[in-house]
Amino acid sequence: MEKVTDLTPVARPKTAAPWSRKSPQFVLYASLASIVPAAVALGTIALTGMDFMAALFIVFLPLQIVAAALVGITVYGRRGILEGLLVVATIFLSSFVFVLLGSVIWSVISNGFSALSASFIFQNNYYIQPKTSLEFGGVGHSILGSLLIVGLSTIVTVPLGLATAVYLTETQGKSKGIIRTLLQAMSGLPSVVSGLFIYAMFIASGITTYAGWTGSLALIPLMLPTVARVTEEALRLVPVELRNGALALGAPAWRAFVQVTLPAAKSGIVTAILLGVARVIGETAPLVLTTFAADRTNLNPFEGAMGSLPTYLFNYIAFGFDESIQRAWGAALVILILVAILFISARVASRTRTKARK
């Protein structure tokens, strides 16, 4: 007799949706398993004066392992020990990274805020000595120099990175593997090597003197891999159905890309540009070797030395005086503020254009 297959639908198992929201009980247990061992370790250090590393290995880590195992047994059963360890370790390490990031930002704000003033933002540092009072001189020339140098690099890098990403995603060229390998190699290029290359090729050889454009040229190899790789991923995330629909309606391949794929990936491309700018705006070594860190304002990136925020910070923290170190902290805070303004402005402009089109 032929066997009949039962096709009756069955209930969806609860574990079939691992992306579903965790229960409040699980969140509470996992949070306690991450917080309590850290609190006990800190209390032990405060009460007994135990060394931090000793408290880490003797008190914190054993308690963390035991707490994570208890969470796994309570939530997932006896077989959930490893899963509990993974979840608690992920929560703890993520919190640790956020604490480190917050401490860095707070250190820059707390130490640099006292240096901020109208004169510090708008004045240059001509005739200013390392021990000069903070009431005189500032980073105005460095802000303009950083904007010009990074802006010139962006003007060159963005079209080149976008063209590279288009070639990698929209064509069937045989050199795609070589280009990806070169991009990966360039992403690990030390910034000082890029600066030394430009210095040896253009400055030491006598072709030109220190100038802003040489600094921009040294930043291009550092910015290009980020822009190209992130743009490539943004273009790959666009549903292929959109492009196929445009082609089915009779549009040429180039028009389908320009009018369908490119607008759909606009947010990712903006992110690629922002990440590229953030990658190079704080680079010091290439600019020290190519721009010479001028103290007066120079608005011509093609002639004469030009100051920038990273070189300003590097020079004044090297002097070692209290006033110069305070100026360096102020420059670091200005860099953070400048990056935040650029990110927020780009996001607001992108959203405004999207709403206007709708």
Rank of each mutant, 00 (worst) to 15 (best):
T8F: 03
A11V: 10
R12M: 11
R12Y: 07
A16Q: 04
A17T: 11
S23L: 03
P24D: 12
F26L: 12
V27D: 12
Y29G: 01
L42K: 00
I58D: 01
A69L: 03
L70H: 03
Y76M: 01
G80I: 01
F92Q: 12
V97P: 01
F98D: 06
I105M: 15
W106H: 11
S107E: 15
F113H: 09
S114V: 14
I121C: 00
Y126Q: 14
Y127W: 14
F136W: 10
G137E: 10
G140C: 13
S146C: 05
L148I: 10
G151M: 02
L152V: 14
L160V: 11
S175N: 07
G177M: 08
P190R: 06
V192R: 07
V192H: 03
V193D: 02
L196N: 12
I198G: 02
Y199W: 15
I203Q: 03
G215Q: 02
L217F: 11
L222T: 01
L222Q: 02
M223D: 11
P225M: 02
T226M: 05
L235R: 10
P239N: 14
L242Q: 15
W254N: 11
R255L: 08
G268T: 12
I269P: 01
L274T: 14
R279H: 04
T284F: 06
T290M: 10
T291N: 06
A294H: 05
N298I: 06
P301Q: 02
E303A: 04
E303G: 00
N315K: 13
F319M: 07
F321L: 12
G330W: 04
V334K: 13
I337C: 03
V339M: 05
F343W: 14
R353D: 00
